[in-house]
Nucleic acid binder design. Sequence first.
DNA 1: GCCTCGATTTTCT
DNA 2: GAAAATCGAGGCC
Length: 190
Amino acid sequence: MEDLHPGAALPRDLFNADAVLVARRLVGTWLQVGPTGGIVVETEAYRQDDQASHSFRGETARNRAMFGPPAHAYVYRSYGLHWCFNIVCLRGSAVLVRALMPVLGVDIMRDRRGLEDIRRLCSGPGKLCAALGIDPGLDRQPIDRPPILVAEGLADVETVAGPRIGITRDVDRAWRFGLAESRFLSRAFR
DNA sequence: GCCTCGATTTTCT
DNA sequence: GAAAATCGAGGCC
């Protein structure tokens, strides 16, 4: 494996754009929360004109962050149990970060997850939040100020695309993006 | 490896 | 009342 470390922080303007473009762009970037972090290997885009998105029916108490400024976090509870971490893009849209290649603070992440297997530490949106210590305290926080950092990561990235996971509407949009050949995905791309 | 199931909050019907 | 942007455990092959 390469010598991995964060590069320059991504500018906020980058997130003031279509979530589909941002989702593809984020594959291979660095995501850090406090003392833990790694390389983003899987994302999904959700737009307001998209029936699978929480924002489709307008603003609610839960999805308020999606209607706030770009480059801020949207953290929500999934299936009543797990947390999911998104980055807000154009108004009413966001990118769900689904999987990470653990790099920084791996022992901390193992402790938080109670799991040794590095390939499964962050291989899903709920797992990733547990490993990074993400909770609703980060909802609506900027992603370019501590404890969050999103920065350049891998130099050359080959991405693959496919249908999103776990949704029942607008299922044919290929808005899930992954790092080609990565062993840290939540599921393989076909 | 595959499958089924249950935990539990938010939203919608 | 039921489904949802999920996960882990347990049963089976």
